[in-house]
Design a protein around this nucleic acid. Structure first.
Length: 741
DNA sequence: TTGGCACCACTTTTT
DNA sequence: GTGGTGCCAA
């Protein structure tokens, strides 16, 4: 046997524990694998696929594996390539969305959808809602677009269309949504666009309405594996169910404790009730953690146990105790960032770890700013994963909208963007656009058709624009048409060059000496660099392929492995990853748990799971930090450490400061020392203490409070105190008899 | 019609 | 500290 050839059965099972082996070899019928963090889930999944191929002679093209991110898919390919060789390439491994796009591109015409659809991302969707609100004469101040979109998306995630939605509105606000929803759908249809929810929903509709198509896919994908099953929504659940009907060779893997996408309509019941749908399902639990030290596992286990809505189970490890968990209070977010940076510098210079072993995790993207500044100042290498993504930058969006317009001129959102952000739209103002949009609505045609008509390129009566506008529109139409004509003939990067010249997009950068514009231009060039990667593809599919891939990238997908740099990442995006050293920052009430989640117990429990996910990313060292005061909206406010920290057992914490922490009325307060400031020495009660902003004080009548402001006043102090129960008071220090806490 | 300026509300998390 | 919106003057 050659060393390169496939591993034998024995090899496939070698090194796996009993539960893992069962998870790999139980291949007849439905299987539910509940896999705790670090329990070798990915290993089990890949080995299971290899086992199917090697031991059961299943053809790899009959296997469908659905992952949460493209990165996870790629990782799975790579591992399988090592296990089964070239056969790996015949597998279908991808995200739900990517898989559905493929299915729809082939079959959407069967359910009345143009397969050349554009995919609308979150920003596009919001724009459609905004415009629809405007058309309906609703004030976006009173009816915020974001919640409306979320509600529509929630409905779509449960396969509820506009008509059904209208039947079950429970409030005036929902009635407004019910008015917007059908119009939203019509705009997308008009623009030949599908949003993220449609990719799943229309695929499901295809299966519903075209049983023979479903049968074909059922026959094709005979074995289905779904990773991160706890994060699937109702439509995804039904897709999986439909595909695996009949053969029932379905294997789902997940962990209810790591369900963190409830807000995206992930339905935890999918995993909890799997056995109701498949009564004969075999349930296998992987609970032995191979990833983390036992200190970290103990912290994680205790944190998650505090959740009430949970299936009781235990996370175990045979690993050593390792380093204790460090909990650090910083003065503010700047100090917090320096603490992290200094600590990383210290660890790396001791030779113990490399930069790439370290990750910093936070609840909200905004928190990355202070970190980034600290990293730039310290000149340590770092990467921000996700966050303000490359494709979210203004200039990139503008450049992309040109490409999207070429791929789909019906896409009015992109067209509007091009008109308002490139020289092409110069001279075409609100009045003209109103006329064009009115014409489009009247004739039920697209905005592009309206322009064509105004340019005399249509048999329909043209919109009543003035001569000057008509001339401009004629030029616009010609330019776009010319670009469309070229798109199937030149390489993608070449097309891009032509497009940014002809639309005058490039011009604005070249003329400006502004350093900010130069930086933006460099980003545009970077985008061009990405495009050259598609130059080898056939000209007629390169553009479409690029647009599709760039829309469906997940935050994690942009992560660079192998570079020696620190990773900055949100807790959500960090799911599924592991790092030897993890800094979990911003462990404060209002951030983690997030203030928007604090009203509902369900949501606080989800926040706790998020905290749990963060902890369990760490292999050897875990730092948890919080700030005493934190700037939000540019203003600095006081913070209190997160209640979640209290669930971590003392004996795994290495933080002298944590010893002094105690609870008061549900909110836990931090210890006395603030970051690099030294602790205030205990003040004798009899003296009038020297007060400083930030100090915790006690007043005999008003109770606990915090000093906000101090004004010196001829030997006395005029202090403003924020009391916990009695609001803000101004007091004279000599009279108030404040006791420094 | 455009561009500049002032004001505003906002920031969860993402395929 | 940001980005989007609205008003005004040219």
């Amino acid at each position: 046997m050659q060393p390169q050839s496939h591993e034998t059965r024995v090899d496939i099972l070698k090194g796996l524990n009993d539960a893992q082996q069962r998870a790999v070899t139980t291949t007849d019928g439905p299987v539910l694998i509940v896999a705790g963090p670090g329990s070798g889930k990915t290993r089990v999944l890949t080995h299971r696929v290899a086992y199917l191929i090697e031991e059961h002679g299943v053809s790899p093209w009959h296997i469908l594996a659905v992952t949460f991110t493209n990165k996870a898919a790629r990782q799975m390919y790579d591992r399988l390539e090592r296990l089964v060789g070239d056969d790996a390439r015949k597998l279908t491994v991808g995200t739900f969305h990517a898989t559905c796009v493929k299915i729809l591109r082939r079959n959407a015409h069967l359910i009345g959808i143009d397969p050349r659809f554009t995919i609308y991302d979150d920003a596009d969707q919001l724009e459609v809602v905004r415009r629809t609100l405007k058309d309906e004469n609703l004030d976006p101040k009173h009816f915020a677009p974001r919640p409306i979109l979320s509600r529509i998306s929630a409905a779509k995630s449960r396969f509820i269309g506009p008509d059904e939605f209208a039947q079950q509105t429970g409030s005036y606000w929902e009635e407004v949504v019910a008015r917007i929803y059908p119009r939203y759908r019509d705009v997308l249809r008009q623009n030949r666009a599908l949003d993220f929810d449609d990719l799943l929903g229309e695929a499901l509709r295809l299966f519903d309405e075209q049983p023979e198509v479903l049968e074909r896919y059922q026959d094709f994908y005979r074995y289905t594996l779904v990773d991160e099953y706890q994060d699937t929504n109702h439509v995804q659940y039904r897709l999986v169910k439909a595909l695996s009907e009949g053969r029932r060779n379905i294997c789902v893997v997940g962990d209810p404790d790591q369900s963190i996408y409830g807000w995206r309509q992930a339905d935890i019941r999918n995993i909890l009730e799997f056995k109701r749908d498949y009564p004969d399902a075999v349930e296998i639990h992987l609970e032995l953690n191979y990833r983390s030290t036992s200190s970290i596992v103990s912290a994680a286990d205790n944190v998650i146990r505090a959740n009430r809505q949970r299936i009781e189970r235990e996370l175990r490890t045979e690993n050593d105790l390792g380093e204790k968990i460090r909990i650090h209070e910083a003065y503010d977010e700047t100090q917090e960032a320096s603490f992290v940076v200094n600590e990383i510098r210290r660890l790396v210079s001791s030779g113990e770890v490399r930069f790439q072993d370290c990750a910093i995790m936070y609840r909200t993207n905004a928190q990355s700013r202070a970190l980034e500044e600290a990293f730039v100042r310290s000149e340590l290498p770092y990467q921000i994963v996700g966050g303000t993504r490359f494709y979210d930058r203004r200039e990139i969006k503008d450049a992309m909208s040109i490409l999207r317009l070429i791929a789909n001129p019906q896409d009015a959102i992109s067209l509007m963007r091009v008109l308002s952000n490139t020289q092409l739209g110069k001279g075409i103002g609100a009045r003209t656009l109103d006329l064009l949009n009115g014409w489009a609505a009247l004739h039920e045609r697209s905005l592009f058709d309206a322009i064509a008509s105004a340019a005399g390129q249509s048999h329909l009566p043209p919109p009543e624009v003035n001569n000057r506008a008509a001339n401009l529109l004629h030029a616009v139409h010609q330019t776009i048409q010319r670009l469309i004509d070229q798109s199937a003939q030149v390489q993608l990067s070449k097309l891009f060059d032509i497009a940014i010249e002809e639309t005058g997009f490039a011009q604005q950068f070249r003329e400006s000496g502004d350093p900010e514009m130069i930086e933006r231009w460099e980003n545009v060039l970077q985008l061009r660099g990405v495009l050259t990667g598609y130059d080898d593809l056939r000209e007629d599919i390169a553009l479409e392929t690029f647009l599709e891939e760039s829309t469906l990238v997940a935050g994690q997908d942009s992560m660079e492995d192998g570079e020696n740099q620190v990773t900055l990442i949100t807790l959500h995006a960090a799911k599924g990853l592991e790092f030897p050293v993890v800094f979990l920052i911003g462990a404060e009430e209002g951030i983690l748990p997030h203030s928007r989640s604090m009203e509902s117990e369900n949501e606080v429990e989800e926040e706790r799971r998020l905290f749990y996910v963060g902890i369990t990313r760490a292999m050897n060292r875990l730092y948890i930090s919080y700030a005493f005061r934190r700037a939000m909206f540019g203003q600095s406010d006081l913070s209190f450490r997160s209640r979640f920290i209290d669930s971590i057992p003392r004996d795994v914490i290495d933080a002298p400061t944590a010893e002094t922490a105690r609870s008061s009325g549900g909110t836990t307060r931090g210890p006395r020392s603030y970051g690099q400031q030294t602790a205030t020495p205990p003040t004798p009660v009899s003296e009038v203490p020297d007060l400083k902003p930030g100090q915790r004080v006690f007043h005999s009548r008003f109770g606990d409070g915090t000093v906000l402001e101090v004004q010196e006043r001829s030997g006395d102090q005029d202090v403003t105190v924020q009391f916990k129960r009695h609001g803000t008071k101004r007091l004279l220090a000599s009279m108030a008899n404040l006791i420094v806490d």
